[in-house]
Amino acid sequence: MRLVFLLLLFYHAIGLGQFVNLNESDFSKADSISFSYKGHSLRNLPVLTYKLTKDLTKDVEKFRAIFTWVCTNIENDYQSYLKTRKKRKRIQKDRAGFLEWNQSFTPKVFEKLVSEKRTACTGYAYLIKEMANLAGFQSKIVNGYGRTPTLLLSENDPPNHSWNTVQLDDQWYLCDATWAAGRIMLDADGPRFEADYDDVYFLPNPELFAKNHYPLESELSLLEELPTLTDFIVAAVIYKASFRFGIAPILPEKMHQEVLRDVSTSFELKIPEGLDVKKFRLALNNGGKDVEVQPKIIFLGPGKIQMDYTFNRTGLYDTHIVFNGDKIATYVVKVRRN
């Protein structure tokens, strides 16, 4: 308990988690440097880190160059993920044992990463930490639960994901290189990695990040208060566009909802000021294709809106909140008779 308390004091003293507004930041130079070293060997990490950061002055730019290089040069290895998941499942009830195993396991992962440039999330997180440390930044590996539209969780599931915290200019930030690098496609011929770098998981808003990342050590969420794991598991599913536009679902708190036909149903969102709310839609799917409908928009105050819609037919609906054509979040709504 004393260690947790000291960690909480430490994070509070230096400032809780921050995030970078990507729309207001110019990382073109950092990204250009990263791309210029595409394919560079991992055999000498100090040299690679120096090359990526030597011509940049700001800490956030230096870390951006590291993050972009890792995300665009390392392939996500699904088979390694499955092996790691099996081990995690065997020791999931021993939290201290899990953390100890994970710490000893990461160097072994790194050996394969250096030779093949392929790894699972543990390897991504280890590489980010090592290169950040070499650049003079503190960084930690965070172990916990990741939740995606195709990766739902139950209370009995073992921890399934790893990501990082990093300290830049006396502030702590979050990042997830694994999810930023691309996606695993489950085809008929087996799983394959599809590279698709997206920087929405580069120093994101901690409050939004906590909607699909749940750390085993709550202080590493960089939030003053973290929801319970149960609340995390049953909440609405969110998509990358949620990070891109800075839109966070607030209510309902649970993804699965039961409502009455011909009675208004509400969805509450936190949005950036100045966002064009006319671009919001609901996309309903009752077993066929998505059908977009126009909800009623109500302003609840600065940075907060409510979307109202009345279902006039019974049934089970995948109900997607859509902004400018991109899915933000999904609820499953069961509509029954009055």
Rank of each mutant, 00 (worst) to 15 (best):
C121S: 06
R95M: 09
L52R: 04
T84Y: 11
V60F: 06
A65T: 09
I74M: 03
G97Q: 15
T84P: 04
R118M: 04
T148C: 06
V142D: 02
E75P: 02
D94P: 07
T148H: 05
K54V: 15
G146K: 07
V60L: 03
F137M: 11
I141A: 05
T148S: 13
R90A: 12
E75N: 06
T119W: 01
V109E: 08
S139M: 05
T53E: 07
A65N: 07
E75S: 06
R147K: 15
S80N: 13
L134A: 09
F110K: 09
G136T: 10
T68P: 00
K51Y: 12
N133V: 14
G136F: 03
A120H: 14
T122L: 12
S139Y: 00
I128N: 01
N73H: 00
G144I: 14
D55C: 07
G123Y: 07
K129Y: 02
V142M: 04
N76K: 02
R90C: 01
E100N: 15
D77W: 01
A132P: 07
T57I: 14
I91A: 14
V142Y: 01
K58D: 10
D59E: 10
R85V: 06
K89W: 10
Q79T: 10
E116F: 07
V114D: 02
M131R: 01
V60S: 05
C121V: 06
A120E: 14
K89H: 13
E130V: 15
T68N: 01
P107Q: 08
V114W: 02
K87Q: 12
I66S: 10
C71D: 00
I91Y: 11
T68C: 00
V142T: 06
L56P: 09
A65S: 15
K51M: 11
T57Q: 10
G144Q: 09
S104R: 14
D94A: 14
Q103S: 13
R85N: 13
L56M: 08
D55M: 05
A120M: 09
E75T: 11
T106M: 09
F98I: 09
E130D: 12
K93Y: 14
Q103G: 02
A132Q: 01
T72A: 00
F105M: 03
K112P: 00
A96W: 00
A96V: 11
L82A: 10
M131F: 04
F63M: 07
N133T: 15
A65G: 12
D77S: 08
R64F: 04
V60M: 03
T122A: 10
Q79K: 07
R85K: 15
A65Y: 04
Q79P: 02
K51D: 13
Y124N: 01
V70N: 01
W101M: 12
E61R: 02
K140P: 00
D55P: 09
G136Y: 03
L99R: 04
K86L: 07
Y81L: 12
G97N: 10
Q138V: 05
A65L: 08
G144N: 11
K83L: 11
S80Y: 10
V109G: 04
